[in-house]
Amino acid sequence: MRQQTGIIILAAGTSARMGKPKQLLRYQGCSLIRRITQAAINGQLHPVLVVLGAWHELIAPEIKDFEVSTVVNDEWQKGMGGSIKSGLKVLMDEWPEVTQVILAVADQPYVTTELFGTMILQRQLSGKGMIACTYSGVAGTPVLFDRKYFPALLNLAGEEGAKKILHQHAADVALVPFEAGAIDIDTDADYDQLISNSTNQGFKIDNDNS
């Protein structure tokens, strides 16, 4: 059976520790939300769903020129579980042919098209139902889920994230090393550090269309 891989980009949070939408912070000439959206498009993932919540009126215009779908999670305050469900419900209703989905977040600046390709290849080679990236000794986003786990994702509540399912079915998980995944942007200090390291071309993304 041919696999069709969709992606849900989780970008609904309020960026409480920054007081402004971190999804719009610029790195290497491009906002974080455009970077990850472009990486998904370049990787030929379909559909590309972006889940918005807080700041949605500011963030949506940033990706309006991309061929993506946006979903607004009106209950974004209740946590990531609700955002996952919001995106997945739309994906299952409108693209029932999708056989696997990648969950990604907008504040990991070093996620690339190549990383998505490696995850999909690992899925094919390992036969595992979940492919998680690993960094700093933990498994985390981006993470790929086979369709058989969609019901479990829909049952997430509140602050529960997908890690709960990884732990429950650890024998069905394969890992992809991604040490740069440990770098995410939660505070002004995180962003300042990212900019100070911007000369590191090893993690430069292919954003030709940005």
Rank of each mutant, 00 (worst) to 15 (best):
R35Y: 02
R35A: 11
R35N: 09
I36Y: 05
T37V: 13
Q38W: 03
A39Q: 14
A39K: 03
A40N: 06
I41T: 08
N42E: 12
N42L: 09
G43Y: 04
Q44F: 10
Q44V: 09
L45K: 06
H46Q: 12
H46L: 10
V48F: 04
V48A: 02
V48K: 02
L49D: 03
L49I: 15
L49S: 03
V50E: 01
V51I: 05
V51S: 00
L52E: 04
G53L: 11
G53V: 08
A54S: 13
H56Q: 11
H56P: 02
H56W: 13
E57V: 14
E57N: 13
E57K: 15
E57G: 07
L58S: 10
A60L: 13
A60C: 07
A60F: 09
E62W: 06
E62I: 06
I63N: 01
K64F: 10
D65M: 04
E67M: 10
V68P: 03
S69M: 04
S69I: 05
T70Q: 03
V72T: 10
V72C: 05
N73C: 12
N73W: 06
N73Q: 11
D74R: 11
D74M: 03
W76K: 01
Q77H: 13
K78A: 08
G79C: 00
G79I: 00
M80W: 01
M80K: 03
G82H: 10
G82Y: 10
G82L: 12
S83C: 08
S83K: 02
S83M: 02
I84Y: 03
I84V: 12
I84F: 02
I84A: 02
K85W: 01
S86I: 01
S86D: 10
L88Q: 12
L88M: 12
L88K: 11
K89V: 14
K89E: 14
K89S: 13
V90I: 15
V90T: 12
L91A: 10
M92N: 14
D93W: 12
D93S: 15
D93A: 15
E94L: 15
E94V: 14
W95S: 13
W95T: 13
P96N: 08
P96W: 09
E97K: 13
E97G: 10
E97C: 07
V101Y: 02
V101M: 02
I102L: 00
I102Y: 00
L103R: 01
L103M: 02
L103Y: 02
